[in-house]
Amino acid sequence: MQNAPVENVGVGDASIIEALRRGDDQVFTEVVERLHPTLRRVARGYLRSEEAIGDVIQETWIGVLRGIDRFEGRSSLRTWVVSILVNVARSHAVREARMVPFAALGLPDDPRSGFGPECFEGPGGEYPGHWSTPRTPWSEDPVAATLAGETRELVARAVAELPESQRTVITLRDVEGWTGPEVAATLGISEGNQRVLLHRARARVRRALDQHLLPMERRAV
């Protein structure tokens, strides 16, 4: 048979699943190739060592194959595979005793959007809740500068330093380009919570960029 296109896993899922069930290793290789970067990026949010990440990815595919006869295609293939990976990675992380509960949305005093109370006028001000100092646009275009190593490194580090739940969501949404409903389904959380985690994650990355890109004398936040 003609191999189903796996450029966008989700479209040809039914025929891919059929091919996997038949033992078509070419289709398996294509699916693995396509999903591998996503799996690595998500796994790295839970585990640091390359060895552990490799183990988790192998265990994930074993889990996928064990479950493939029961997979009913209610979610996309990639959603299902990543949800298996998240479960495997979390149980590895629990064994390493470095797991925080996924439900933790951030510390209560962590300003949701990355702006502390000092950024806004207080209740006694002329315009309570409005900016206390003007916002400064970034002095260079970080999109143009992304390929320059420094900015890219900065963003990668900001993402790496996020709490696991925020990191997983921003990785799937903004790095991998998944939709909100798909990410919520994969992680078993509501779309609203998914957006809260995403917003906090973006806020932290924005802040890292802000500190990097603002002219020295304007770095207020």
Binding site: G54, L65, L209
Partner: peptide, 29 residues
């Protein structure tokens, strides 16, 4: 802009499937 810049991390080559891992996973399959 933050969203756009974060999206550029997807082109990171370090996460591509490497040959030993490919061989290992095909073996599993």
């Amino acid at each position: 802009t933050t969203i756009t810049v974060t999206g550029r991390l997807a082109s990171d080559d370090v996460d591509r499937l490497d040959e030993p891992t490919r061989a290992q996973l095909i073996g599993v399959f």
